[in-house]
Design a protein around this nucleic acid. Sequence first.
DNA 1: TTCACTGCAAATGCTTTGCAGCGCC
DNA 2: GGCGCTGCAAAGCATTTGCAGTGAA
Lengths: 151, 151
Amino acid sequence: MAETTAHGTARRGGREQRVTKQRLAVSAALDRLQDFVSTQDLHRLLHDEGASVSLATTYRILQSMADEGLVDVLRTDDGEAVYRRCEATGHHHHLVCRRCGRAVDIEAPAVETWASHVAREHGYTAIEHTVEIFGLCPECTAIVAREAAEA
Amino acid sequence: MAETTAHGTARRGGREQRVTKQRLAVSAALDRLQDFVSTQDLHRLLHDEGASVSLATTYRILQSMADEGLVDVLRTDDGEAVYRRCEATGHHHHLVCRRCGRAVDIEAPAVETWASHVAREHGYTAIEHTVEIFGLCPECTAIVAREAAEA
DNA sequence: TTCACTGCAAATGCTTTGCAGCGCC
DNA sequence: GGCGCTGCAAAGCATTTGCAGTGAA
């Protein structure tokens, strides 16, 4: 569906993609973060550091980057979309901290084959799957433990 | 968090749960369906067959049933919550038709151990995970194929 | 100059909530 | 009878969109 050129500049169906300061700001922020962030959070972040990107534009840019496969999208428990630029380029999964959003890329070939095997077994076609692991990262584990001790 | 009695009647933290005709209607509808449905869809369904359950109540009942573990909850790609009564009672996953919502319960002990192993390896704690497989069920595969042929 | 990109604000659509009346236990 | 449950309508929120101005190529 979406193609990406060697330099990260992307195009969709031949339509050009202009390099604006808003797009650069969003891209830079994503590079700097190693966490999954919601559009609202990212917009607040950009706004706080003085970048002029409107909320609507943040939504548009993030959505377009997701379409182009430049960022990974996830849904939090309450249905909010969160985005993250990943090292891994192809299909992969994540181990995500549910407190701070920090994530680790996970490859799991065995799970892939298992999924397609199970699906085919039941006659399902056009298979896709989602596998995400949520937990508390080491740091957040410590913080939560400390808070529990104080209480 | 939530406990369930032997007869499906449930209680939370000692607070009682009354058996109303709305709750029975929702429960019956879920039993009849073998598919994941959104609150909006379920409400439309109930309304069309004459049951008098308001949308707000449908939301409240479904949410409470999810809290009690009486139904499984999933999020569609666009963040909408969908519910389903499952045969399997404990932790399990699903093979879901993305067109009609029909689902098959999946058990995958190997995936469970893999997930907790990976998480621990990275120092993550309080682990949970989601594994869902989406595709087209046999019937929908046929329908889609026919539509493609006609076009 | 052109046309994609932006900002702003209004509009969506799902979900939640306040409140008064109803009905299960 | 008491109190949880309902319905209705009014919020709440994340996300989308129409439109006119702006700026990248």
